[in-house]
């Protein structure tokens, strides 16, 4: 493998530094305590600093002698649609009820593939909603109303 400056390394390292740093800053708000009685902030502070330090090392290594990783395309459409579908489910399952929330989520998700035909998408969504209802509500007695209060039930 060829080794030189590597953008993925710098990006990954940056993420570690960011998240580790955020936890360290957050941990400052909690009591650190003494070694005998460590407060709630001590352990996250320690681990957060470790993550940030490792991230920094990855960034530095990435600038000098990183791994060359083919980054490849990003399927923006899939990312957007799947995020939307999951957030929609979490937001509406209580209000709309199981069936409408599942159907919309499934339909949205099928659209993540750029090759899907509308008819196939509807068929897949309908099939999955039916399967999901059968397995989770009928089979496993999940206590979610099929149709929710937002629809007047």
């Amino acid at each position: 493998m060829e080794r030189r400056r590597s953008l993925p390394d710098v990006l990954a390292g940056g993420i570690f530094v960011l998240i580790g740093g955020a936890f360290v800053v957050g941990a400052l708000g909690y009591e650190l305590g003494t070694p005998l009685r460590m407060g709630p902030g001590a352990f996250p502070m320690l681990v957060g600093a470790t993550v940030a330090a490792l991230g920094l090392a990855i960034v530095l290594k990435g600038l000098v002698a990183g791994e060359v990783i083919p980054f490849g395309p990003i399927p923006w459409r899939a990312v957007a649609v799947i995020v939307l579908a999951l957030v929609f489910f979490g937001f509406t399952v209580r209000g709309l009820g199981f069936v409408p929330a599942s159907a919309v989520t499934a339909l949205l998700t099928t659209l993540a593939s750029s090759r899907v035909r509308p008819l196939t998408a509807v068929a897949v969504a309908a099939g999955l909603t039916a399967a999901g209802t059968l397995i989770f509500v009928v089979g496993l007695q999940l206590r979610i109303p099929l149709l929710g209060p937002w629809l007047g039930f």
Binding site: I82, F89, V124, G132
Partner: peptide, 17 residues
């Protein structure tokens, strides 16, 4: 195209439950 919507939907339902 059938498989991945199934994974997403069932993951959402399962995690919520």
């Amino acid at each position: 195209q059938v498989l991945f919507p199934m994974i997403i939907l069932f993951a959402a339902i399962g995690t919520y439950s």
